[in-house]
Design a protein around this nucleic acid. Structure first.
Lengths: 247, 247
DNA sequence: TCGTGACGAAAGGTCGGATGTCCTGTGAGG
DNA sequence: CCTCACAGGACATCCGACCTTTCGTCACGA
């Protein structure tokens, strides 16, 4: 095994074993390199890799730290991975969403705090009559994100968010708007919201299923008929590397 | 943005845009470094990071290649991330499994080929009367893995497999402590198998839910009473880095 | 003709040091 | 007491050299 991979494993072990806890600072590069028995260059490769998946947080001029290791932070790296998938696997991802989102929606109907439900309604209301595509996508993302968060399970929330990556959603929406299905989507959003607000988990679950199944079905026929009409990489360079937490 | 991160984005773009397809070979480090406008060292950090999440496959003496980008390969990296989570989030993961596995089981009851069902029964049969804990866990993992694969959705399958990691050690502990857990688990496995074999998706779904909810409930009470009894890093060094595919 | 083994080019693996850039604590000065 | 410039520490980047592995080539022998 290359020394770099070995270093990755050792650092991982240091964290999992509890020797390094969330927020702890690692020894400086030179010291850690000596301790692990490799050069700084190789160590930096290991650190970079662990940094990509949000396990380590390097701050120039300061030091290298272990992140909070919160589920949302680590699962966030999943979004990076999802971006790589081509259109022929989008349906598989959507199918998983059709499993997860209804479940999350039902959970939200039971667990979501009143204040959050009010805010959820506000999201629907703040969308005008003739929204731009960008506003529509942002609004849709916000709506589903709040519901996922309302499930009370951070793992489930992050998973859903990662799977409905901005790329895929933007692509889908682009097509949906052209089909003029905006109205139906808004009606379904409204129905989901009302089911949650009235604390009816099964109704909420069903509407969520209907909602996603609709997108799924549309995409299925779309991929079947207009082969190649949907190209990848229409929306890139998002570079959403934000919510690093620094204790 | 650091040049290394920039390089990661550029390589990602090259892949997502189709300039580099699965199996394609990247220019050699020196050339690619020059093309992207950075040093070989920095480029190597980027490559190492992309290699960790299975996007690139570096082969010494040969070259660097884009992997197949298959969902199972990329989601496999999720397992690495999941390993970092502490026990206080295990319940969240288990809850997600309680959503995904029943759905996968129901799908398997409809889609699993006869030959695979026979093999599934074989897995149950090959476990002796007095299995070791290790054999039990391995058998359990195999059983659930086959069902997940039987769903016909590779994304769902990989996701379940990745999420099963942290709960594995919990199951080990359970097998060691709880009386009758082994017998009950085997009965439930048998019931799940029979439901699949007789093509009854709803029965299969219910048994799977019961099965996982049982583990969940046990773990919940266990974490409540014996706080801190479950230490992390009981099972480490797995380092399952195997199924690299080289076209 | 075919198999085999040695050779060498090519590519990644590792290393250590030099220099640039950024953050932070600290102490002089107002 | 507050402000700001300075010095130290730590990461960022680059460079160039050398090692290791892989694979294609080619000559040799069966």
């Amino acid at each position: 095994m290359p020394v770099t991979d070995e270093a990755i494993e050792k650092i991982k072990t240091m964290i999992v074993s509890g020797e390094l806890g969330p927020g702890d600072r690692l020894p400086k590069e030179a010291d850690l390199a000596e301790r692990l028995g490799l050069s700084r260059s190789s160590l930096r490769e290991a650190v970079k890799a662990l940094s990509l998946i949000r396990v380590l947080d390097v701050r120039q001029g300061d030091g290298t730290y272990v992140t909070s290791l919160a589920p949302d932070l680590l699962l966030d790296a999943l979004g990076f991975v999802v971006d790589f998938h081509r259109d022929d696997t989008v349906l598989d991802f959507l199918e998983v969403r059709r499993i997860l989102e209804p479940a999350a929606t039902a959970m939200a109907a039971l667990a979501m705090p009143e204040a959050e439900i009010v805010a959820l309604g506000g999201v629907l209301a703040e969308l005008g009559e003739e929204p731009t595509v960008e506003a529509l996508v942002a609004n849709d993302l916000d709506f589903h994100r709040r519901i996922a968060a309302g499930s009370g399970n951070p793992v489930l929330c992050s998973l859903i968010e990662s799977l409905s990556g901005p790329t895929a959603r933007a692509r889908i929406w682009r097509g949906l708007t052209q089909e003029g299905a905006v109205r139906r989507t808004r009606e379904q959003h409204q129905a989901i919201y009302e089911a949650i607000a009235s604390r009816q988990p099964e109704v909420a679950r069903s509407w969520a299923t209907v909602h996603i199944a609709g997108v799924e079905e549309w995409l299925r026929t779309m991929l079947g008929s207009a082969e190649g009409a949907l190209t990848s990489a229409e929306v890139n360079g998002s570079g959403k590397r934000s919510a690093q937490d620094r204790p």
